[in-house]
Every structure is written in C-alpha cells, then in structure tokens.
C-alpha cells in the first residue's frame, strides 16, 4: 500500500523538479524548426530581468492548459554558471514544467536576427511560430489573456 502511494506521488513531485537543457544556438534553432503540428511559443528571459520572471507563470499556465496544441519553450539567457544557483530556483518557485533551455551563447549578434529580424534584442521577448512556420514577435511582457488571444488568433484547427 505504502509503495503504491510512493508510486503515485513520485511522478507528481518529479514534475515539480526543474530541469534545464543547456544548448548552443544551433540546437535551439533545430528545436524551433522541428515540426510537430503544434504552435510554438518561445519565450526569451533571464533571472535578473524582473518583468521576464513575472511573466513566467503565464507561459506555464499556457503550457498546462494548451499543451496538446501549443509547445511552450522557455529560453533562459543566463550564464551557464548560474544554472544551479539562479535559474533552477526560479523554475522551482514558479513550478515550471514547460520545456526550459539555457542558451549558452555570448555574442547575441550572431543569432538574434535568426530568431526574428525585427527583434531588437530587448527582453522580455516572445516568438510565436505558427503552423505555417510564420514567426510573430512580441517585444513586451505578455499576460495570460494576451497569450491565449494570440494562440486563438493564429490557431488553425
């Protein structure tokens, strides 16, 4: 009986554990390009950016509510050296279960335009890739309601 309880509870707690995949631009680009029929919502953030951290729960909520239609990708731009000390605690505190990456690149000039040419590099920033592979950039904080509206407007059943 006890072991059954453990079996039931362990997966629950496991989802609360943050896991970050450290990637280079090439790998992130591949993730962004991979077609899986879902709308991709790629959010660029960092722990030191207050407005970025404040909007993380909106993306998590989107992931939990629309995970079957929408793939949420959270891309931390923090230094790799603070993954354990800064990035993970923020993810745990906000109960993030959405896919999280840490983009380990120092010269953003080499990849910003590849995300979206009109992106100035300011964060918070979110790129939505629709089912036709069109990219839409939002260079501001987004509320949950705004995110749902964006998805609703571009979603093609």
């Amino acid at each position: 009986m006890k072991s059954l309880l453990v079996l039931v509870l362990v997966p629950f707690f496991m989802t609360q554990t943050a896991s970050v995949e450290v990637v280079k631009w090439k790998e992130l680009e591949k993730e962004m390009m991979t077609k899986n029929g879902k709308i991709k919502v790629v959010n660029f953030w960092m722990t030191g950016c207050k407005s970025c951290v404040e909007e993380l729960p909106h993306f998590e909520q989107l992931h939990r509510s629309f995970g079957n239609q929408v793939e949420v990708m959270l891309v931390s731009l923090d230094k790799e050296s603070v993954e354990e000390t800064k990035v993970n605690p923020v993810l745990v505190r906000n109960r993030i279960t959405a896919k999280t990456f840490l983009l380990d690149e120092v010269d953003a000039n080499t990849w910003i335009d590849k995300v979206e040419p009109t992106w100035t590099g300011a964060i918070p920033a979110t790129v939505v890739i629709d089912q036709n592979n069109q990219r839409h950039i939002y260079q501001k904080s987004l509320t949950y309601a705004e995110l749902v509206k964006i998805i609703h407007d571009i979603h093609k059943p």
Partner: peptide, 10 residues
C-alpha cells in the same frame, strides 16, 4: 550595426 540582448527600456 550589431544586436545584443538587453533589458527593454521601461
């Protein structure tokens, strides 16, 4: 011209 990540002007 170059681009870099920065904090959006509030």
């Amino acid at each position: 011209e170059t681009k870099a990540i920065g904090c959006s002007i509030k």
